[in-house]
Amino acid sequence: MVSPKLFGTALLTGAAIACAIPAPIALAEGNQPAERLGLVNLTIHDHATKTFRTALLACGLNTGSHPDPEAACDAIANAEGDIDAIEGDDGMCPLIYAPATVRATGFFAGKPVEYSETFSNACVAANATAGVFDF
């Protein structure tokens, strides 16, 4: 038998979680096709400064915190959801060794996204992923 105190705590916890879940996410203008929809959490761990940055990439949705979601979503879509297959560019980056580990978890086009890689610095990471990790 569940104690009343434990039951009350479970109810309050459930209510708090329910309140924290946002309202349904609306599709962006033009109702994107399913192969362009995605919600991916991105992180950059800067080993030199021991800091983390995060961004939410919401492809085809009216939400997210990525500064250039259209370009990032295009890059992922062109790689068919495989961030490791993105053809990056060789843009100019400082030749400073400041390792940065990037990670992506979520879903794109109905498939799970799991990606993690360490680059020589955050600029190289942004260039190698065509801007996905440029935030």
Rank of each mutant, 00 (worst) to 15 (best):
A104S: 11
M1P: 08
D68Y: 14
A79V: 04
A72S: 13
A128G: 04
T118D: 02
E29H: 02
A126S: 12
L57E: 01
L37S: 01
G131T: 03
V2D: 12
K5M: 15
S65M: 06
H45W: 08
S65H: 01
E117H: 14
V40P: 10
T43I: 03
C59E: 11
G88S: 08
A104I: 01
I17V: 15
R103N: 11
E35Q: 13
L42I: 02
P99K: 07
A79S: 08
H47C: 03
L39G: 13
C93H: 02
G88L: 04
I96F: 10
G8E: 15
F7C: 11
A55M: 03
A109V: 01
D46K: 01
S65N: 07
R53L: 07
N121E: 04
F52E: 13
T105H: 03
F133I: 00
E35N: 15
D134N: 12
R53K: 12
A23H: 13
T49V: 09
S65A: 05
V132L: 05
T49W: 01
A34K: 10
S116L: 06
T49Q: 14
E29K: 04
G38W: 03
V102T: 03
D46Q: 04
G110W: 05
D68R: 05
P22L: 09
L56G: 08
A20G: 07
P67H: 07
A77F: 02
G38L: 04
A77W: 04
A34G: 09
A109E: 05
I96Q: 14
G88V: 01
D46N: 13
F133N: 00
N78Y: 13
V40D: 11
G30H: 04
G60A: 07
G131L: 06
A18K: 12
T13Q: 11
L6H: 09
C123F: 06
V124G: 02
V2H: 06
Y115G: 01
H66P: 01
L39M: 13
F133R: 00
A79C: 03
L11P: 00
G88H: 00
N127S: 10
G30Y: 08
A79T: 04
A71G: 09
A16M: 12
G60C: 06
A20N: 06
I44C: 04
G88M: 11
L39S: 11
A28I: 05
A130K: 07
A16C: 12
A109Q: 10
S120H: 09
M92D: 14
D82P: 05
V113Q: 07
V132I: 13
G60E: 07
P69R: 12
A126T: 00
A109W: 00
L27H: 14
P33K: 03
A58E: 14
D89F: 08
H47N: 10
A122K: 10
I44R: 15
F135D: 04
N31L: 02
L12I: 01
T101M: 05
E80Y: 13
